Simulated assay, not measured.
Amino acid sequence: MKKHDQDVMKRHNRRTVFELIKKHHPLSRADIAKRTGMSPTTVSRIAFELMEQGYLSESDQAAASTGLGRKSTLIGLVNTAVLSVGIELDRHRASIGILDLQGSVLCTCKLARQAEESPEETISRISAAIEELVQRNAVDRTRIIGIGIGLPGIINNDKGDVVFSVQLGWKNVRLAERLTELTGIRTAVDNELKAKALAEHLKGAAVGSRRTAILGLGSGVGSALILEGEVYRGGMNSAGEIGHITVDPGGMMCECGKAGCLQTFINIRSLLSEAGKVRRVHKIEEIFAAREAGERWAVHLIERALTYMAIAINNLVCMYNPDSVILCGELPDKFPEIYGEIEALCSSHIVWEPLRGSFRIHRSELSEWGVVIGSGLLSQNRFFQL
Rank of each mutant, 00 (worst) to 15 (best):
D248C: 09
K277W: 01
M253L: 14
K258I: 04
G250H: 06
E274V: 08
G251W: 05
E274A: 13
G257Q: 10
T246I: 15
A259I: 03
A259Y: 09
A275P: 00
I268P: 01
C261G: 08
K277P: 03
C254G: 14
K277N: 09
C256K: 09
A259M: 11
P249V: 14
S238G: 15
H244W: 03
I266D: 02
R269L: 03
E241I: 07
L262E: 10
G240Q: 08
G240L: 12
E241H: 14
V247D: 08
A259D: 04
T246V: 14
D248Y: 04
I245A: 15
D248P: 01
H244S: 13
L262A: 05
R269A: 07
S238E: 12
G260M: 08
I245T: 14
G251T: 02
S273F: 02
L271H: 01
M252S: 15
L271G: 01
D248W: 08
T264I: 01
T246Q: 11
C256F: 08
S270G: 06
H244F: 06
G260C: 10
I242V: 15
P249E: 11
G257H: 03
E255T: 08
G250W: 05
I245Y: 00
C256E: 11
G243H: 04
E274H: 00
I245M: 15
T246K: 08
I268F: 02
G243V: 06
C261V: 02
C256H: 11
P249D: 06
R269E: 12
C256Y: 05
A275S: 10
T264F: 04
G240F: 09
G276M: 04
C256A: 13
C256M: 10
L272C: 00
G276V: 01
Q263C: 14
M252W: 07
M253I: 02
A239V: 06
I242L: 14
I245L: 15
S238D: 14
M253T: 07
N267S: 14
V247M: 07
G257S: 10
I245V: 15
S270I: 04
F265V: 00
L271R: 02
A275L: 07
E274D: 06
I266P: 14
E255Q: 13
H244C: 11
A239Y: 12
T246L: 14
S238L: 02
L262V: 06
C256I: 12
I266V: 11
Q263F: 01
M253G: 12
K258H: 12
T246Y: 00
H244G: 12
Q263R: 07
G260A: 10
C256V: 07
F265I: 01
L271S: 00
M253R: 15
G276N: 12
C256S: 09
M252Y: 08
S273G: 11
G251R: 02
I266H: 03
G250F: 00
A275N: 06
S270V: 05
L271M: 15
H244E: 11
A275T: 05
I268V: 14
A259H: 10
G251F: 04
Q263S: 13
R269K: 13
K277G: 11
S238K: 03
C261S: 07
E255P: 06
Q263A: 09
N267I: 02
S270Q: 02
A239G: 15
R269G: 15
L272R: 00
C256P: 10
S238M: 08
A239W: 06
T264L: 09
I266L: 06
T264G: 02
C254P: 09
K277I: 05
S273H: 03
G276H: 06
N267A: 11
C256G: 11
C254A: 12
M252D: 15
D248S: 13
